[in-house]
């Protein structure tokens, strides 16, 4: 398959709240939570930021990074579980804001935390079949966690956009494989403000079964093994799950280190492993091989194998890196966080 990443862009809001600050409000043991989750702080959107504003900023960074003509983008798919409208696509607003309208097709995707990688696969098919020249796949979320729930310590905000095409690839997609079952590990009913989850059930039958099955399935089909890869990225609901999944599969801590952004960022849901891939591309060199596996509750995983090209050096500094967005945060207290997240109803 001759399809690859032509450009990418990320956006992370500037605000952070530390795990200690959330734990203090609920009388929880912060050290125990930090040790258990391997997450120290999470990003928080500003009061005028949402999934769409974050998606637009990431998309603009992707376009600017490689000097893409937005009129050549034939499809935009925005994956999120926090689309601001139940009916009215986020993608139309993104497309208009990046100057890609009107000659393109659009849709919003939803598959818990893997809607963004499902969008990548859709763009791959459309580019490979010559339906479009360039496709944009976005994962963006201002994820929700109920006050006091375990999710509140990790549910963060951020977005990532990838532009897929045949020419000027910075990372070729060698292959992809998905593993999907009907597994009710996490859900949010229509009209409900916060998701529900199956507690420990989200682990083995949810995350680990799907991530390892998709990863092993792709490697079996390609005839590769973990040592063939320079880097690996797994969906990051916390720091512990991807670290353990990597170990189960035979990847080392060194391979996942550049892409493990969750301890300083939290879980950006649809942007989660796509953010890890962006952080890895930020430091990758030509010929590096990168393995990525997403996970979306419900449940499914998409695994990908990438090979970086020498074009990466030409576009590397065209837009802010993940590290640039992670540095110099503004820390807020729980009251300000509650206000930013709309948890206080006026």
């Amino acid at each position: 398959m001759n399809v690859g990443i032509v450009s990418y862009g990320v956006y992370i809001p500037r605000y952070r709240i530390k795990v200690e600050e959330i734990a203090k409000v609920w009388g929880a043991n912060a050290n125990s939570i930090i040790d258990g989750l391997m997450v120290y702080e999470k990003s928080v959107p500003d009061m005028d930021e949402d999934t769409i504003t974050i998606a637009v900023e990431a998309a603009r960074n992707a376009i600017n990074r490689a000097g893409i003509n937005p009129e050549k983008i034939g499809a935009i798919y925005t994956g999120s579980e926090s689309h601001p409208y139940a009916v009215k696509p986020s993608s139309t607003i993104v497309a208009e804001a990046v100057g890609a309208t009107p000659d393109l097709t659009l849709a919003d995707f939803e598959f818990a935390c893997k809607a963004g990688t499902a969008a990548i696969q859709t763009c791959m098919g459309m580019v490979d079949s010559d339906m479009i020249e360039l496709g944009m796949a976005i994962g963006s979320d201002v994820s929700q966690g109920a006050p006091g729930d375990a999710l509140e310590y990790t549910a963060a905000a951020g977005g990532v956009a990838y532009i897929l095409g045949k020419n000027n690839q910075v990372a070729n997609i060698e292959s992809t494989y998905s593993f999907t079952t009907d597994t009710p590990d996490f859900w949010r009913r229509e009209g409900m403000p916060y998701p529900e989850h199956g507690g420990r059930f989200t682990g083995e039958p949810g995350y680990f079964k799907h991530v390892t099955s998709a990863a092993q399935g792709l490697m079996e089909r390609m005839g590769t093994k973990p040592s063939d890869y320079d880097y690996a990225v797994f969906h990051q609901p916390n720091g512990k799950f991807p670290t353990r999944a990597a170990k189960m599969l035979g990847f080392t801590n060194e391979q996942i280190k550049p892409g493990l952004v969750v301890p300083r960022l939290g879980n950006t849901y649809s942007g989660s492993c796509m953010m890890g891939l962006a952080a890895t591309l930020d430091i990758a060199k030509a010929e590096d091989r990168i393995f990525m596996t997403s996970f979306g509750s419900g449940a499914g995983s998409d695994a990908f194998s990438f090979v970086v090209t020498d074009k990466i050096e030409e576009i590397r500094n065209g837009a802010p890196s993940v590290e640039k967005y992670l540095e110099n945060p503004i820390y807020i207290n729980y009251a300000t966080y509650a206000r930013h997240k709309g948890k206080i109803k006026l």
């Binding site: 005028d48 930021e49 900023e57």
Partner: peptide
């Protein structure tokens, strides 16, 4: 920067 300019209550349009 691209931001929300306002919105018409929880039911109305969101202005970007």
């Amino acid at each position: 920067a691209f931001r929300k300019l306002g919105e018409e209550s929880d039911r109305g349009m969101i202005y970007y």
